[in-house]
Design a protein around this nucleic acid. Structure first.
Length: 197
DNA sequence: AGTTCGATCGCCT
DNA sequence: GGCGATCGAACTG
């Protein structure tokens, strides 16, 4: 751990997120998402654009709910859906411009026992966080985390100590009806923790 | 004030 | 592969 001092374990900085969502979504693959000792490797993401994207919550402008998507980059946009699930997005683009990345799946790394407690329904470890609602439950992320700064914590994203090599696959996004043809889903090829192929 | 529908999950077949 | 659960956000009138 920390072979190069604080450098390796420091969270990604704001400039990482100050770019178009598709670019950030692609580059978040292989990074580590952590909260309170539980962590996982990001294996699946989706980009949501600010304009020309009917599927994005921000498509109809600023509302109390979508406010943080228009805020500064590097913050968490957490929303509650279907009466039961919380989903985690990371805000991209400069302040005033909408854009975010939905984190869809993790490969569990640390704090796995705690994840099993929170996700008793999971039969295997690769089911603990293989979906957007599952990963938030596994890590204990809730709507109360909406707006928090992921460059400082308590939710953090950082580069792995040793980056594994992987191949990136692309597809259309899952479960949407508007702008459904855009190739804005990114995932690590052949990884068992990806929500679906 | 009422209605519609959704960036999902887990169980059932 | 299909479907019910379950409720908040946003739109309509």
């Amino acid at each position: 751990m920390k072979r190069f001092g604080e450098h390796v374990d420091s969270p990604l900085t704001r400039s990482f997120y100050l770019r178009p969502a598709p670019r950030v979504a692609r580059e978040l693959l292989g990074k580590i998402l952590a909260l309170d000792g539980a962590s996982g490797r990001i294996v699946e993401t989706e980009a949501y654009l600010g304009e020309d994207d009917g599927a994005a919550h921000s498509a109809r402008g600023i509302t109390p709910r979508t406010r943080v998507i228009f805020g500064p980059p590097g913050h968490a946009y957490v929303y509650f859906i279907y009466g039961m699930y919380d989903c985690l997005n990371i805000v991209c683009e400069p302040e005033g411009i909408a854009g975010c990345v939905l984190i869809r799946a993790l490969e569990p790394l640390t704090g796995i026992d705690r994840m099993r407690e929170r996700r008793a329904a999971a039969k295997h470890d690769h089911d603990l966080a293989n979906g957007p609602g599952k990963l938030t439950r596994a890590l204990g992320i809730k709507i109360t985390h909406n707006g928090v700064d992921v460059t400082t914590g308590p939710i953090t994203i950082h580069a792995p100590d040793r980056a594994k090599k992987f191949e990136i696959a692309t597809s259309t996004r899952i479960g949407i009806t508007k702008s459904a043809d855009l190739p804005l889903r990114f995932f690590i090829k052949d990884n068992p923790c990806v929500s679906r192929r």
